[in-house]
């Protein structure tokens, strides 16, 4: 299990490849990458991601450990960035490895649902005209936890 919180970009392909190579015996590897979405109006220039150093690492580790205890996973990887990102930049990735694909898919979805509302990150959209707005949490994201 590996959890990384970092400002620097990560190399998605290299991480995914190394993860898959190390998970020997696993028949299924699922990866998910979150990308900074352009705002609907197209007016966003930068997304600032604030986090709670210390708690972030703890929360991500707890979430990853929970996934490992619920599904038979060979390995889990979580990378989440903070700082200033531009539309198109990769924010985060998760990877899960399991003997069969159902566990790998489900665990990846579980990780994503919990990362959304239980990992202490906050997103702020800085618009091209200089205005700034905090991204509000969605009820749907909180509701998504109920299925687990």
């Amino acid at each position: 299990m590996r959890v990384l919180v970092q400002e620097a970009p990560f190399a998605f392909a290299a991480e995914a490849d190394a993860f898959a190579s190390a998970a020997s015996g696993a028949g299924a590897v699922v990866t998910f990458t979150g990308v900074v979405r352009e705002s609907d109006s197209g007016a966003m220039s930068v997304m600032e991601i604030e986090h709670y150093p210390g708690m972030t690492e703890k929360a991500l580790t707890q979430i990853a450990s929970e996934a490992v205890s619920r599904w038979e996973l060979a390995d889990v990887l979580v990378i989440h960035r903070h700082g200033r990102l531009a539309p198109g930049d990769q924010i985060m990735m998760v990877a899960t490895a399991a003997r069969h694909r159902v566990a790998a898919f489900e665990a990846a979805e579980f990780l994503m649902d919990y990362l959304k509302s239980r990992a202490p990150f906050w997103k702020k959209e800085i618009l091209k005209d200089g205005a700034a707005e905090w991204v509000a949490a969605k009820d749907a994201d909180e509701d998504a936890l109920d299925r687990w």
């Binding site: 979150g34 709670y52 708690m55 989440h80 924010i91 985060m92 994503m112 990362l115 959304k116 509302s117 239980r118 990992a119 202490p120 990150f121 906050w122 997103k123 905090w134 991204v135 509000a136 949490a137 909180e142």
Partner: peptide
């Protein structure tokens, strides 16, 4: 003690 709005990770 830390106070913050609902989190928006992912």
């Amino acid at each position: 003690v830390a106070f913050f709005p609902p989190m928006t990770g992912g």
